[in-house]
């Protein structure tokens, strides 16, 4: 391989690199159509994404049930639970904190320890 031949070949390669072949008409469109036809569907967005993120219908069903049960316990509590709803509605309280009955609180308890 003589030097001039090598140089000529390099020039030809450079020309080939600078001159990419023209694409056949419509090839890019056909490939794009293939790409879109094969593309997996996009993931959900917005409220639907939140709906699925918290577990979908089963999870929401559980939340609704828990809310209803909680509300019912609040309205009609079992006998061994305090009737908090009634207290809220009627304003009565079961116990009050008598300010005079509590020992006076002071910082760090120095006064108790040191007499």
């Amino acid at each position: 391989m003589t030097k001039p031949d090598t140089e000529m070949l390099e020039t030809l390669f450079q020309d080939a690199r600078r001159t990419p072949p023209d694409l056949p008409e419509g090839l890019m469109d056909r490939i794009m159509a293939d790409a879109l036809a094969q593309q997996p569907a996009a993931g959900p967005r917005g409220w639907r994404a939140i709906w699925l993120a918290i577990g979908g219908a089963p999870a929401v069903g559980g939340l609704v049930t828990a809310t209803a049960v909680g509300f019912w316990i609040g309205v009609a509590p079992p006998s061994n639970l305090p009737d908090i709803a009634a207290q809220i509605i009627t304003g009565t309280t079961l116990a009050t904190l008598d300010e005079g009955s509590a020992p006076e609180l002071s910082a760090f308890g120095w006064d108790i320890e040191e007499g």
């Binding site: 890019m28 490939i31 794009m32 790409a35 879109l36 593309q39 997996p40 569907a41 996009a42 993931g43």
Partner: peptide, 11 residues
Amino acid sequence: QGDAAAARLLT
């Protein structure tokens, strides 16, 4: 992930 713009860029 369903990004159509990525399909176009790759093509």
